[in-house]
């Protein structure tokens, strides 16, 4: 899937540039894109290294395990294949908590850790497992408890009621998350050959 999408994006943009006459911009985008990628990686660098270290402390001290106890009644239903004591399940709990609290740059390192733990138990190293699909899909739906970032952004652009949209944001993301989880679990069940 990613193969096609990636190739499609590049092919379409080259074809498009012939019609729009933006061939110059396209060439510079090719170089700028690579530069932007490095900038983003530098931004991620600090967060990933720092939070991976912090997470290790939480894990060694048994704090992760406590979190697992709180979240496992709910999350174990979504990840039936994972052992509750596994590192993969622990990392998922950390990722979900960070997401709910709105600490996005901590959620990503925990999520990457969860993926590498799940990959260890994966038989076919190039194909996603059911748990991986459910996990990534949950991460693509925004699951913040109190989405404040958008409120602050609205405030800085002179909104009279910057936080009035927040209940709607919560409602919309709850619906999106529900759709994501239900669809992924349904499709997981359908593909029983896995």
């Amino acid at each position: 899937m990613t193969n096609y999408i990636w190739a499609f994006m590049i092919i379409i943009s080259v074809l498009c540039s012939f019609f729009t006459g933006k061939t110059e911009q396209l060439s510079s985008a090719l170089l700028c894109g690579a530069e932007k990628a490095v900038q983003l990686l530098i931004k991620l660098f600090g967060a990933v290294v720092f939070w991976s270290g912090i997470m290790k402390i939480a894990e060694k001290s048994g704090l992760t395990l406590k979190l697992v106890h709180i979240l496992s009644p709910l999350l174990s239903k979504l990840f039936p294949e994972l052992d509750r004591d596994s590192e993969a399940f622990g990392s998922i709990c950390m990722n979900v908590s960070a997401n709910l609290l709105g600490i996005g740059n901590a959620a990503t390192p925990f999520g990457l850790k969860a993926m590498s733990e799940m990959q260890k138990q994966n038989q076919d190293k190039t194909t996603a497992t059911n748990s991986m699909v459910t996990f990534v899909v949950m991460n693509t739906a925004s699951m913040q408890l109190i989405p404040t970032t958008i409120g602050y952004l609205r405030q800085s652009y002179g909104s009279k009621e910057p936080f009035a949209v927040i209940p709607y944001v919560i409602a919309a993301s709850a619906c999106a998350l529900a759709v994501a989880v239900v669809l992924s679990l349904t499709f997981n069940r359908w593909s029983l050959w896995k």
Binding site: W6, S116, T127, V133, L183
Partner: peptide, 19 residues
Amino acid sequence: TVYFGSVGITNTRHTLPVG
């Protein structure tokens, strides 16, 4: 892409359509 790329998985099955 980032989550699956980090572990080298190319067949993401129904992840993207569901997302």
